[in-house]
Design a protein around this nucleic acid. Structure first.
Length: 682
DNA sequence: CGTCCTCGAGGTCA
DNA sequence: CTCGAGGACG
């Protein structure tokens, strides 16, 4: 095998890397994996190191920061043209008002104005200054009038041309744009950092900001960042006169011609309705975009009109930012409560100044445990960044620095040493704190809620609210009271009419003979959830058999090990639980025995041996129904995607499970395909 | 020992 | 729906 000469190979690598760079941008997706890209890049750098004579100014490797010794602080320079921010608007009405103001100022009557519209990518703004086609300086926004010198950082970024392409490059050019990190790069980076134990940033934007603030550029990290241009701030000819350019569209075309990335979603529209429509379209595409975007930016296209419209103190009058509903928000932490859960676990919970987040007002958010709070040094009074995980559960991501600088901060959060509900001395197990008192009212409350919940006995009319009330009133003082509710007693309480009382009593009555697996779940044995309950039910058949099974029998069941067996034995051997069981039996509780042959039936199903994962929302049936149907066909329905998953059924708004399935190359069925499968097997 | 999987916990709103 | 912790298993 003949080996190409270093010279040939270097040229090959350079052009290959440039080609990937280009595809990476124009398609918004890499044509090869990041690792593969890194490998090519490394090979090129090694070859260049070995053959200094073959180095070239325009090699992709020249982008990487040169590693000069750092000064004490990043120097700043003035912006020749102030770097203002664009006014953020939050509703179609505000956008229409903006347009009305523009048309009034321009005296164009009803004539629609032409706007250049593009996604507002969530990154960090930067200005790149080129003299005679060479990058001489890069500045951050700073305070708008002066920016920090981030030249060495920007040189390390792919697609920031060191020199502008083309023959007719004007002697002075300033291009502004956004330094961003694609979502998949952020993920990669986050995992890497977490593995190294380095600082982990909350989102791509913070990551970029953090990396640009470092005195010493981090070449590896910078290589993953990208630059998307959004404005040509200056373009001067030899005489120092503005080069004649009529529209923003034309200006951006030039920028692309010089070698900058082209925004696939930038588009020219006429009139305000088109902007509103584009906003809706982009918001729908939000999850599919490779970059985080938080809205849309629309700018008046004709540059002559920019001059006529001018600026307010803070922002240009010819540009608007139309934001999407926020998914992350910053708010003030007003307090930290400690909740006691069903298992006695103490969970700190953030009390927040109410803030609007993806369409809902968030007042509380989880703080998980003491370690989580301590690691982030979150204290009452801090400004905190919150997000709804999977657009559902709010959580506090991190503390954000207060612009007003360091203030006196509250004391660090500490877990109480006594249970906030029953005052029992708190015990610590690993990361978690527990109230050890089995009679703690909090445990009773959550225990009853759990027992009545959908996945357990599904007793209608016994939600959190009513359980609270009944526990408070002393109607429920132990689990078995649920099955001894009396209409006369309920009638004494507020909000309980004859009808609702009857309904709950009947629902409880029906619950007595619910399926065995549900009953096992309802008991609330530690470590025993629905999967384990299911296994116990199918293996042992009756509640008595479960209660009497010894360790050996238990651990012989697939999915049950030492730990679970101990918990199960301990539960059934505890005198209090034995009393409970006796009482339940006396009250007529007879869980419906599980037919042991259910397993054989399953084995014969069409989907026997398959593991299926559901994600997203199906429109024609609920998750439970889908799960049941799949089980009936012999499939195992798992909660998370792994290499063992046979296929994934993805409904609307599918989340990370879908991504993972795609990454692992696991087949994905959409709802239609899933229905077809069910029909074919049914 | 690493990988897979289950458990448990946590908002708001209709 | 998602995440971390930790149990089960090969």
């Amino acid at each position: 095998m003949t080996r190409p000469s270093p010279h040939r190979r270097i040229e090959e690598l350079r052009s290959e890397i440039r080609a990937h760079d280009r595809r990476y941008y124009e398609l918004g997706r890499p044509s090869i994996s990041d690792d593969e890209y890194d490998r090519l890049f490394r090979e090129l750098r090694e070859l260049e190191d070995a053959h200094p004579e073959l180095r070239s100014e325009d090699s992709p490797t020249r982008r990487v920061g040169s590693g000069l010794p750092a000064g004490s602080a990043i120097p700043t320079h003035p912006h020749a043209v102030p770097m203002l921010s664009i006014d953020s608007l939050f509703g179609a009405d505000e956008v229409r008002e903006f347009d009305a103001r523009v048309r009034k100022a321009l005296h164009v009557g009803e004539e629609p104005v032409e706007y250049l519209v593009e996604p507002k990518y969530d990154g960090v703004s930067a200005a790149l200054i080129y003299e005679d086609g060479r990058l001489v300086r890069a500045l951050s926004r700073g305070d708008g009038t002066r920016g920090e010198d981030i030249t060495r950082h920007l040189l390390g970024i792919r697609h920031v041309p060191v020199s502008l392409a083309g023959i007719d490059v004007p002697p002075l050019v300033e291009v502004r744009g956004e330094v961003i990190l694609a979502k998949h790069s952020f993920e990669h980076f986050r995992k890497l950092r977490a593995a190294e134990g380095g600082q982990v940033f909350a989102n791509p934007r913070n990551t970029v900001a953090g990396l640009l603030k470092r005195l010493e550029p981090d070449p590896q990290a910078l290589q993953r960042m990208e630059f998307l241009p959004w404005w040509l701030a200056r373009c001067k000819d030899e005489q120092g006169e503005d080069v004649a350019i009529a529209t923003l569209e034309e200006a951006m075309a030039r920028v692309v011609g010089w070698g900058f990335a082209k925004l696939a979603r930038r588009k020219l529209v006429r009139g305000i309705d088109a902007i509103v429509a584009e906003h809706a379209e982009l918001e729908a595409l939000r999850d599919e975009e490779p970059y985080e975007m938080d809205g849309l930016v629309a700018k008046v296209n004709a540059l002559a009109l920019h001059a006529r419209l001018g600026f307010t103190a803070r922002s240009p009058r010819w540009a608007l930012a139309f934001k999407f509903t926020a998914r992350q928000a910053t708010t003030t932490l007003q307090g930290i409560e400690v909740q006691v859960g069903r298992t006695g676990r103490l969970t700190p919970r953030a009390v927040l100044e109410p803030v609007l987040l993806s369409g809902v007002t968030v007042r509380h958010a989880t703080l998980h445990n003491l370690a989580y709070v301590a690691e982030r040094d979150i204290r009452v009074g801090d400004r905190v960044l919150i997000e709804r995980a999977g657009d559902v559960i709010p959580k506090v991501l991190q503390r954000v620095d207060d612009e007003r600088g360091e203030r006196e901060r509250a004391a660090a959060f500490a877990m109480p040493s006594q249970c906030p509900v029953c005052s029992a001395a708190v015990e610590v197990h690993g990361e978690h704190h527990y109230c050890p008192n089995p009679d703690c009212p909090a445990q009773l409350r959550w225990g009853v809620v759990h027992l009545a919940s959908r996945s357990a006995l599904d007793i209608e009319g016994l939600g959190e609210k009513s359980v609270d009330q009944l526990v408070q009133a002393g109607v429920i003082t132990k689990f078995s009271d649920v099955f001894e509710l009396r209409a006369e007693r309920l009638a004494e309480l507020d909000g309980w009419g004859e009808k609702s009382a009857m309904q709950v009593i009947e629902a409880a009555e029906r619950a007595k003979t619910r399926d065995l697996a549900r009953w096992i779940v309802a008991l609330g044995i530690p470590e025993v959830g629905s999967a384990t309950a299911d296994a116990l039910a199918t293996e042992l058949g009756t509640l008595e058999a479960v209660a009497n099974a010894d360790r050996e029998r238990l651990t012989s069941i697939h999915g049950i090990g030492d730990e679970m067996a101990s918990e199960i034995r301990a539960w059934f051997e505890s005198p209090a639980k034995q009393a409970l069981m006796a009482k339940l039996a006396e009250l007529g509780v007879r869980p419906t025995a599980r037919a042991l042959r259910a397993r054989e039936g399953a084995a014969a199903g069409q989907l026997a041996g398959k593991t299926v994962v559901l994600t997203g929302t199906l429109s024609s049936l609920t998750r439970e129904e889908a799960t049941e149907k799949l089980r009936a066909l012999g499939a195992k329905v798992a909660g998370s995607v792994s290499s063992k998953t046979s296929f994934v059924v993805a409904g609307d708004a599918a989340g990370t499970k879908l991504e993972k399935a795609e990454k692992l190359g696991i087949p994905v069925l959409d709802e239609a395909a899933f229905r077809a499968l069910l029909d074919a097997s049914g």
